[in-house]
């Protein structure tokens, strides 16, 4: 049910995504992440079109960490910041991070290869039902995503909504 992808540019870094529904302890999870007891990014899956979005955000976060140019204080918060189309950090957390009442959570962990125990330990902290990561498309709030990313209908005639979103994420620093 997990989705695992090695970052080709950074072979020491692998990204695993885990999707949970019917989550009962979102507030507690968020606090654990803030306190550093969960070494992962907790994302609001309704703002995701596709898991590829998370991979693009994670790859950029690892890159910026290595060259010392992160805009936030940790790799996990940088992943959340990179998902947003704007450079406003608090807005990025509000929209793309988990909020206290959320019933679904995408848990993203950047780790070394073969760390299944670590992943199990992190997943065990979620009080919810794990579902396949691909199911995220059922949760996407497409109207909200189109509005936040300012995607007009004509853009979707020449590419997917995912392309539109990923392009904005990739180049927001120079817009």
């Amino acid at each position: 049910m997990n989705l695992t992808q090695e970052l080709e540019l950074f072979p020491d870094h692998t990204v695993t995504q885990m999707l949970f529904k019917e989550v009962k302890n979102a507030a507690e999870l968020r606090q654990s992440a803030v306190d550093g007891r969960i070494n992962g990014a907790l994302i609001n899956p309704t703002m995701l079109v596709n898991p590829f979005q998370v991979l693009v955000a994670a790859n950029k976060a690892v890159h910026l960490q290595l060259i010392g140019k992160m805009k936030t204080r940790s790799l996990n918060s940088e992943i959340i910041f990179n998902l947003s189309p704007t450079n406003n950090i608090s807005e990025a957390f509000k929209r793309f991070g988990t909020s206290d009442g959320d019933e679904s959570v995408m848990l993203v962990v950047v780790h070394c290869k073969n760390e299944s125990q670590l992943l199990e330990d992190i997943a065990a902290q979620v009080d919810g039902r794990q579902v396949p990561v691909e199911d995220v498309s059922w949760l996407s709030d497409l109207a909200k995503i189109r509005k936040l990313f300012k995607v007009a209908p004509q853009e979707e005639t020449c590419g997917t909504l995912l392309d539109a979103v990923v392009c904005r994420m990739a180049i927001k620093d120079v817009m």
């Binding site: 950029k60 890159h63 392309d163 120079v174």
Partner: peptide, 8 residues
């Protein structure tokens, strides 16, 4: 149409 940008 132009190719989507993934990373810079």
């Amino acid at each position: 149409p132009a190719p989507a940008v993934y990373f810079v």
